[in-house]
Write a protein that binds this DNA or RNA. Structure first.
Lengths: 246, 246
DNA sequence: CAGTGGTCTAGACCACCAG
DNA sequence: TGGTGGTCTAGACCACTGA
């Protein structure tokens, strides 16, 4: 239990509850606490960590939210998952492939301004015909085509951007450089058969199953910023996520 | 602004912060506050609602978590979505179809105990060969086949259950009657072409695109309870969700 | 500079669960 | 009956924003 020792830096810009939850998480991940183990009570933990009970509770809550801990009134707090099962995030395919070590590369097929069609205009809540940036990319992993990605972005966003800017990095990384912070997205995931064009581009037989994703993204100011319509080679890509109740 | 009036019942078993957030949500949904409007400051809201600031904050936080409000330090709290875009939940297809008015019905194809194969055993973290319940159902919407659902459940769960119990209701409703409360699930969503068998059952041509979902569910005690392997007619079903950042 | 949300404290009372 | 987590209060100080 002494391995549960936690260091807090009161002067740090990172909140105390978060410092604690990060260290608690690594303690669990490295096996200092394993599935089924109970944590000491909140009162005791607060005393041990030198913080108030609400702060200790908030640190614990972060791990409860991520599915590592379960609280039961009158009983205690218990470890239910030794390692973190990561929730789905607003992440870019490029970053995901990088982390998986699959060597992403990108071919920019189109990058231009054009008037928004009815569907895009509706999603972005702008008038039909308003100029938007249209970006069409082919994403490859280890040199093989994996996804055809079409995006529409509201127009002030990508000023002074060249197609080359998308070669070594993902769209969301480019947006981050423009101080655009994604906050939430509405997604629809479906499946479809590859059209003739899609099949040709992705190097698949016509009619091959594709995983399709339609997305509308909102930034941290509440602005509707981007629409994405992506199709993935179903044999080589799937979507993983954690779904929580309550 | 007087339409923002909120009633609190201190003696109620439902927490004050939740009473407030529910009423605040309906106020926004009925248009008393619309996109772009600012809420009064937390201090003022706390006074107006007759609660402490942490309680007021927690009520507001619930709507921030659901993507209806955005907070900015030094600025204020702003409405960014008039209506709630509902996050993906641990819900049953049966319930979803009911709400959408699509008249679900179910054909139970198999309901039996059998030894867990390697894949199921691994997912449920039990020994291979351990007896589990196997449930195979065909779900129809408005009389047309929509999904083929195969589930494996740890064995003490469905004692004294008959196949008929699944006709008028979903698996999760049956589990709820057994006091099993789902808490989190890990899901993988992919696409595939319909096999000969799948095509026959779903009344589709062979090779038709299917949306496939693999799921491992954990209940509120941390027990791994259920594995699901479902395929859906891609032309008639898709998965919708909200993804949040941070 | 005044006002906002972000964090934190030190208490309190309660519902719930196990022995 | 004693200990647990769930809720709530009334303060406090801070970082950040915009005028």
């Amino acid at each position: 239990m002494s391995t549960l020792h936690i260091e807090v830096s009161p002067g740090s810009p990172v909140p105390i509850y978060h410092q604690i939850s990060e260290q608690l998480q690594s303690a669990i991940e490295r096996g200092a606490l394993t599935k089924g183990d109970f944590l000491p009570s909140e009162i005791e933990l607060a005393a041990r960590w030198g913080v108030s009970r609400p702060t200790a509770r908030r640190a614990i809550q972060e791990l409860v939210d991520r599915g590592m801990l379960v609280r039961k009134r009158g009983v205690g707090t218990q470890v239910v998952n030794a390692q973190l099962r990561r929730a789905m995030r607003l992440s870019s395919l490029h970053g995901d492939l990088m982390r998986a070590g699959r060597k992403p590369s990108t071919i920019v097929r189109t990058f231009a301004q054009q008037p928004a069609d009815q569907q895009v205009a509706e999603a972005l809540e702008i008038a039909e015909g308003t100029p938007v940036h249209y970006l069409e990319r082919l994403r490859l992993a280890n040199g093989e085509p994996l996804a055809l990605m079409r995006n529409w972005l509201i127009t002030p966003l990508l000023a002074n951007t060249a197609p080359e800017d998308f070669h070594a990095t993902g769209l969301y990384e480019v947006l981050a450089g423009r101080r655009i912070r994604p906050r939430l997205a509405q997604q629809v995931i479906s499946a479809k058969a590859a059209s003739l064009d899609e099949a040709a581009v992705l190097n698949l037989p016509q009619g091959a199953p594709l995983l399709a994703m339609w997305r509308v993204m909102q930034d941290d100011t509440g602005r509707l910023v981007e629409v994405g319509d992506h199709v993935y080679d179903a044999g080589r890509y799937s979507v993983e996520m954690i779904v929580m109740d309550g």
